[in-house]
Simulated scan of single mutants.
Amino acid sequence: MIKPLYAALAAALLAGPSYGAEGNVSPVQMISAMEDAFGVHPGQRRNHIKGSCALGSFKGLAAGASYSRSALFSGQAIPVVARFSLGGGNPAAKDADKGVRGMALEFKLPGGALQHMTMINVPVFGAAKPQTFYDLLLALKPDPDTQRPDPAKVKAFVDSHPDFQAMAAFTQSHNPPASYANSPYYSLHAFQFLDKDNQATLVRWHFSPQDGEKPLTDAEREQAPANFLEQALIDRAAKGPVNWDMYLTLGQPGDPDNDPSHPWPQDRQQVKVGTLSITQAMAQDQGNCGPINFDPMVVADGIAVTDDPVLRARSAAYALSFGKRLSGQ
């Protein structure tokens, strides 16, 4: 059943809309470029391939309920399946390499509804439109002779894509975290929160670690083993809950709702709306996160997506990657 299902999915995506600013980047093209850049690892994710699973719960505050009628903010403990990961499609990436770290959450709401939040630890994304991310992947394709990206092509990409430069500057100037537990995670995209009267509030959100932010020092980066983040999270969770506080940033008129590369002004009001608690962590082949497609457009009542082309392109590409993964490709 899996292969026919994937074939139908691929056909639908091929026939469906494209998502580039010029209308010329399809999900199939995006995933193909990702495979060219990172190689194909059958049965695995095309991006954020290296990761770990975790389990926990989320408890919302009444402050959140004033902006959204979502069951997230009922005050009840909501079960969560989480996945922590490194950006990119290289399963042998070193945990101390500079770059993004991800936290993806699936909230299991009463009545069987699901809410996803798929975030990274950089406060701004490196693409205002899908075309930019696609062009990055093309630039990262290894040279046949060196088996490494051509530095000239990468530089040409950076120089010609100003919407990528803020994220590049951030990742180059910040060392990665010593633990997944010592990193914040950001929604990047704007969403609409809908209250009980259907009044909408434009928001972005982030999760702030109660353990505090702790980047690796330069010396620690040099000495770190290739794989330490998973065991560090497992060990930390064994000592007690690992907590992050969820904060909303409230948008104001004129704040962009469709450009994750554009930060909102720093004076925007922030509201604490709940706490995520991770109580158990494990390898992804031992946990419940492996089979999940953490599509960021999976939202439940009380939260609505915006007309963000990057968000929509992510969702479509995730679906295609998920189908390939299910079929063992």
Results as ranks from 00 to 15, higher is better:
Ile2Ser: 09
Lys3Leu: 08
Leu5Cys: 07
Ala8Glu: 13
Ala8Ser: 12
Leu9Cys: 09
Ala12Met: 13
Leu14Asn: 15
Ser18Tyr: 09
Val25Met: 14
Ser26Val: 10
Pro27Thr: 13
Gln29Asn: 11
Gln29Trp: 12
Met30Arg: 13
Ile31Asn: 14
Ile31Leu: 14
Asp36Cys: 05
Ala37Trp: 07
Gly39Leu: 13
Val40Phe: 12
Val40Glu: 14
His41Asn: 12
His41Phe: 13
Asn47Trp: 15
Leu55Glu: 15
Gly56Lys: 05
Ser57Asp: 10
Gly60Thr: 02
Gly60Trp: 04
Tyr67Met: 11
Tyr67Pro: 06
Ala71Asp: 15
Phe73Trp: 07
Phe73Cys: 04
Ser74Gly: 13
Gly75His: 07
Gln76Phe: 12
Ala77Lys: 15
Val81Asp: 08
Arg83Pro: 03
Ser85Tyr: 03
Ser85Leu: 02
Ser85Phe: 00
Gly87Ile: 00
Gly89Glu: 01
Asn90Trp: 05
Ala93Thr: 08
Asp95His: 09
Gly99Tyr: 00
Gly111Cys: 13
Ala113Lys: 09
Leu114Ile: 14
Leu114Trp: 11
His116Asn: 12
Met117Gly: 06
Thr118Ile: 11
Met119Ser: 08
Asn121Leu: 00
Phe125Gly: 01
Ala128Asp: 08
Gln131Thr: 15
Gln131Met: 12
Tyr134Thr: 10
Leu138Asp: 04
Leu138Glu: 10
Lys141Asp: 02
Asp145Leu: 11
Arg148Gln: 14
Ala152Asn: 10
Ala152Gly: 04
Val154Ile: 12
Lys155Ile: 09
Asp163Ala: 09
Gln165Asn: 03
Ala166Ser: 05
Ala169Glu: 05
Ala169Gln: 07
Ala169Cys: 01
Ala169Leu: 02
Gln172Phe: 02
Pro177Gln: 06
Ala178Trp: 04
Asn182Tyr: 03
Asn182His: 14
Pro184Gln: 00
Tyr186Phe: 08
Leu188Ile: 03
Ala190Pro: 03
Leu194Asn: 05
Asn198Gly: 09
Asn198Met: 05
Ser208Asp: 05
Asp211Cys: 11
Leu216Asp: 06
Leu216Arg: 06
Arg221Ala: 14
Glu222Met: 08
Gln223Ile: 02
Ala224Ser: 01
Ala226Trp: 01
Asn227Pro: 00
Ala238Gly: 06
Lys239Asp: 02
Lys239Phe: 01
Lys239Cys: 00
Gly240Asp: 01
Val242Arg: 04
Trp244Lys: 03
Pro253Ser: 09
Pro253Leu: 11
Pro256Trp: 08
Asp257Lys: 14
Pro260Thr: 03
His262Ser: 15
Val271Glu: 03
Val271Leu: 07
Val271Tyr: 03
Val273Gln: 08
Thr275Met: 12
Ser277Asp: 11
Ala281Val: 01
Ala281Gln: 03
Met282Pro: 01
Ala283Ile: 01
Gln286Arg: 13
Gln286Glu: 07
Asn288Thr: 10
Cys289Tyr: 01
Cys289Arg: 04
Ile292Thr: 07
Pro296Trp: 06
Met297His: 10
Met297Gly: 11
Val299Tyr: 15
Gly302Ser: 07
Leu311Val: 02
Arg312Gly: 09
Ser315Leu: 11
Ala319Lys: 15
Ser321Gln: 06
Ser321Asn: 04
Lys324Leu: 05
Lys324Asp: 01
Arg325Ala: 08
Leu326Glu: 05
Gly328Asn: 03
